[in-house]
């Protein structure tokens, strides 16, 4: 698989998408920081024009625990969209650029090619989560948020990384959508449908049994009154990721590649 990994890494390095996704995660972190800035002192925010005259903000507390929880929610919800796009690009581009054919009859197996793509996707997701966490901590320090503690920061950072990992796992089936759909379009449609459905199902209270709602629930997006998804929900997410990866590999090996 080493050869396939090298090839996938080169393709990713030459693409603009890593920078675009880093920018998206950077902006998300800045927005979370700005939210804390507003929440800490609404009058000051009004003076800066960051908050409308009659707007009221409630929810997270303007302290480190609240800020880290907000970042975890950004990783969970934003992560599904961004990681989904990464997976769609990794697989869909081979069909949109008509290069898939050149990967099918080689000494390197199709399974190795698929595994290399998922590996690059996982590394990419990890780096973005680290960016969100690192930049988030830096912005939090600059804002001089109250309630800092080293164990609290470690726990909060761990929650961000875990939420990102759950979101990344739920993005795996999009590889199959991009492969079966032979390009970006169908897979992006599936991604939109998943994001929309996950919101609706979570709002109806069944989020713990819908894998794409689980990362958000895990990050506490439903508020302190909601139960976390539990082990069953987390297992469902893991099963979704594994099933997505395996079915994609099976499809690449068994499907008729007519394009």
């Amino acid at each position: 698989m080493r050869e396939a990994l090298w090839a996938e890494l080169l393709k990713a390095r030459r693409s603009r998408l890593p920078w675009v996704t880093a920018l998206a995660f950077g902006v998300a972190t800045l927005v979370c920081g700005m939210f804390m800035f507003i929440l800490a002192d609404p009058a000051r925010a009004r003076a800066f024009g960051l908050l409308g005259g009659k707007a009221e903000i409630s929810g997270a507390g303007a302290d480190w625990p609240g800020y880290l929880a907000l970042l975890a929610q950004a990783a969970a919800v934003g992560g599904l969209g961004v990681y989904g796009l990464i997976v769609v690009w990794l697989f869909g581009r081979e069909f949109s650029d008509r290069t898939a054919t050149d990967l099918l009859a080689l000494p390197t197996s199709r399974t190795a090619v698929v595994a290399a793509k998922f590996t690059i996707g996982a590394i990419w997701a990890l780096l973005l989560a680290l960016l969100l966490t690192g930049l988030g901590l830096l912005i939090g320090a600059l804002l001089a948020l109250p309630g800092w503690s080293a164990p609290g920061a470690v726990q909060g950072s761990g929650r961000i990384m875990a939420a990102a990992a759950l979101a990344a796992l739920t993005a795996a089936p999009l590889a199959l959508a991009a492969s079966v759909g032979r390009g970006y379009l169908a897979a992006v449609g599936v991604l939109f449908a998943i994001v929309f459905t996950s919101q609706v199902i979570a709002a109806l209270g069944y989020g713990a049994v819908f894998p794409w709602s689980v990362p958000g629930l895990f990050a506490g997006i439903a508020g302190p009154g909601q139960d976390p998804p539990g082990l069953a929900g987390l297992a469902l997410v893991a099963a979704t990721g594994v099933t997505g990866a395996i079915t994609t590999a099976v499809w690449w090996n068994r499907a008729d590649h007519t394009r």
């Binding site: 050869e3 080169l10 393709k11 030459r14 603009r16 390197t108």
Partner: peptide, 16 residues
């Protein structure tokens, strides 16, 4: 997005 040489390098690697 890859150069001619890089495209061939990808193929060379995959062909070991």
């Amino acid at each position: 997005e890859l150069t001619v040489r890089e495209n061939l390098d990808v193929a060379r690697r995959l062909r070991r």
